[in-house]
Amino acid sequence: MCLGIPGEIVAIVDDADDLASVEVSGVRRTISTRLLADEGVRVGDWVLVHVGFAMSKIDEREADLTLDQIRKLGRTYDEELEAFMETEIV
């Protein structure tokens, strides 16, 4: 199963190439924010991450609710977090 997982933008890595560092459950990865270039992202924003791309911006409340529901999926959450740890845009 492939899920989008909420992450918080913790740093802008490369503005010109639309790269940002996002943190998900204590794990940091560089992701592409190119799909949100028209909206723009900044440190502190929450985004829905899927296969190394920020798919949409969400608010912190939605991020918390989504993470809570994903955690309830048990192994599926663990698998998604493992996939996130293995995926990084460089």
Results as ranks from 00 to 15, higher is better:
26 G>Q: 00
90 V>T: 11
21 S>P: 00
50 H>E: 12
16 A>L: 08
45 D>A: 13
54 A>F: 07
38 D>E: 06
36 L>E: 00
82 E>F: 04
15 D>C: 00
31 I>C: 10
45 D>L: 12
22 V>N: 03
82 E>V: 02
63 A>Q: 12
83 A>F: 03
18 D>S: 04
62 E>Y: 11
66 T>E: 15
81 L>E: 07
13 V>G: 02
7 G>D: 11
88 E>T: 12
2 C>D: 08
21 S>H: 04
85 M>I: 00
83 A>S: 07
53 F>K: 10
28 R>Y: 02
32 S>M: 03
43 V>G: 11
48 L>S: 15
22 V>R: 00
43 V>D: 13
32 S>N: 08
74 G>M: 13
82 E>C: 01
24 V>Y: 00
41 V>W: 03
88 E>F: 08
52 G>P: 09
48 L>I: 09
19 L>R: 12
74 G>R: 13
43 V>K: 11
61 R>M: 10
69 Q>W: 14
42 R>S: 14
68 D>A: 15
39 E>I: 01
73 L>K: 10
32 S>T: 09
88 E>A: 12
68 D>F: 15
43 V>T: 13
85 M>H: 00
31 I>H: 04
81 L>Y: 03
50 H>M: 13
82 E>Q: 02
85 M>W: 00
5 I>C: 01
69 Q>C: 10
85 M>K: 03
78 D>W: 05
25 S>D: 12
23 E>W: 02
34 R>K: 07
35 L>S: 09
62 E>L: 12
73 L>C: 14
12 I>Y: 03
24 V>Q: 01
73 L>M: 15
43 V>L: 13
19 L>H: 08
37 A>D: 04
82 E>W: 04
4 G>L: 09
32 S>A: 06
18 D>E: 04
22 V>G: 02
65 L>V: 15
3 L>I: 14
17 D>N: 09
60 E>D: 07
32 S>K: 05
79 E>I: 05
40 G>K: 01
14 D>V: 00
25 S>Y: 04
20 A>T: 06
65 L>S: 15
73 L>T: 15
26 G>H: 00
56 S>K: 14
53 F>L: 12
3 L>C: 09
83 A>I: 04
89 I>Y: 12
29 R>S: 05
88 E>P: 09
48 L>T: 08
60 E>R: 10
84 F>P: 03
33 T>L: 02
74 G>W: 13
66 T>F: 14
13 V>W: 00
83 A>C: 06
53 F>V: 10
38 D>C: 01
39 E>W: 05
79 E>H: 08
47 V>E: 05
11 A>E: 11
3 L>S: 08
2 C>W: 04
61 R>F: 10
65 L>D: 15
19 L>P: 03
30 T>Y: 05
1 M>S: 14
27 V>D: 07
76 T>A: 10
84 F>A: 08
73 L>R: 09
74 G>F: 14
56 S>Q: 15
63 A>L: 14
83 A>T: 07
11 A>Q: 10
39 E>S: 07
30 T>N: 10
81 L>H: 04
